[in-house]
Structures are given as C-alpha cells and as structure tokens.
Computed example of a mutant assay.
Amino acid sequence: MNKYLILCVDDEREVLDSVMQDLDCFEEHFVLEAAESVNEARNIILEYREEGTELALILCDHVMPEQTGISFLIELSQDSQTAKSKKVLLTGQAGLDDTVEAVNHASLDFYVAKPWYGEKLRSDLKTQLTSYMIEHESDLMPWATVLDTETIFNAIAQNRTSFGE
C-alpha cells in the first residue's frame, strides 16, 4: 500500500521534526518524507515519481527562503503529475491575499494555522487523504482501516450502486 507519498516542507527543522512526529501514524501505509526547501521537495517528488510512487498529499509552509509555499503549491497544481495531489498550507505567516491567490488557482485544499494541535492535524489530513483515495484509488477496501472508515464504506457502496445502474 506504500505507493503514495506524503511530503512535508518547512525550512525550520524543529517545525519539520514536530510535524513528522505528529504524522508518524501514517507511516505504515504511506511513504512519509520531509524537505527543508522547495528544491529538496522537487527532488523528492521526482525521485518517488520515478519509482511509481504518487504524491498524495503535500503539507507546505508558506514563508521559505527561495520560494513561497503558495507559489510552490500553485506550481504543483499546474503540473499534470502532481495536480491531483492534496495541497495543505501549514503556516502562521500567509496573509489573506496569498491564501486567496492559492485558493483561486485551485492549488490549496486545506489551510492549517500555526501553532497546530497534533490530533487536529492528523484528523484534517486523514480527511484530505480519504478524499484523495476515493478520487484516485480503485480498490478502497484496504484504506478503510487506515483512513475515515465510514466515508470509505459510503464511497464503496456508492460505487457499487453506480456500477449496478
């Protein structure tokens, strides 16, 4: 089941370590990677793409040295290989104009403000990943124990109903 990547991007190592610790519950079923820069994130995405691992979700800080998180998420949304991935902004720095720009370019699926709470972050990302799997995975049953069980089962039932029509 580890053919999907969750990538966390933040230029502050302490923040990145904390996020990775909060998300370690996903590590059994997803490849979980961290990047301290947009360039490192690009390389990780490319490396996993070459192995056949799709970017399911990216959690990205906004304020970074070489490129803002929002401009990177917009870039990913315009790339056919990463357009369908869930894009989550984790920041305390993005202004309203930046956030509106990201939403208007369809490059932001969710926004998490710093400081975050681990349980809430896990829940929010589980929702995003559930949505991603329903949209892109044909065999949902294995994901029912990992993600939002009720939503997955409802999607399976809906698929059976649609298929039987």
Score class of each variant (00 low, 15 high):
V15T: 13
L16F: 01
L16T: 05
D17S: 14
V19H: 00
L23M: 12
C25I: 12
C25Y: 02
C25N: 05
E27D: 12
E27R: 11
H29F: 13
F30L: 11
V31G: 00
E33F: 01
E33D: 04
E33Y: 03
A34I: 02
E36F: 06
A41M: 03
R42W: 05
L46T: 15
L46A: 12
E47P: 02
Y48W: 12
R49M: 12
E50P: 03
E51Q: 15
E51T: 08
T53D: 02
E54Q: 14
L55C: 05
L55H: 00
A56P: 03
I58M: 13
L59E: 06
L59V: 08
C60T: 11
V63E: 09
V63I: 08
Q67E: 14
Q67H: 08
G69E: 00
I70S: 02
S71W: 02
S71Q: 04
F72S: 04
L73Y: 01
L76H: 07
D79A: 10
Q81K: 14
V88C: 03
V88L: 00
T91H: 00
Q93M: 08
L96R: 10
D98Q: 06
D98F: 01
D98T: 10
T99W: 06
A102V: 06
A102W: 00
A106M: 14
Y111P: 05
A113S: 15
Y117N: 14
G118E: 10
K120H: 04
K120C: 04
K120T: 08
L121P: 05
R122C: 02
D124E: 13
L125K: 08
K126V: 11
T127S: 11
Q128V: 03
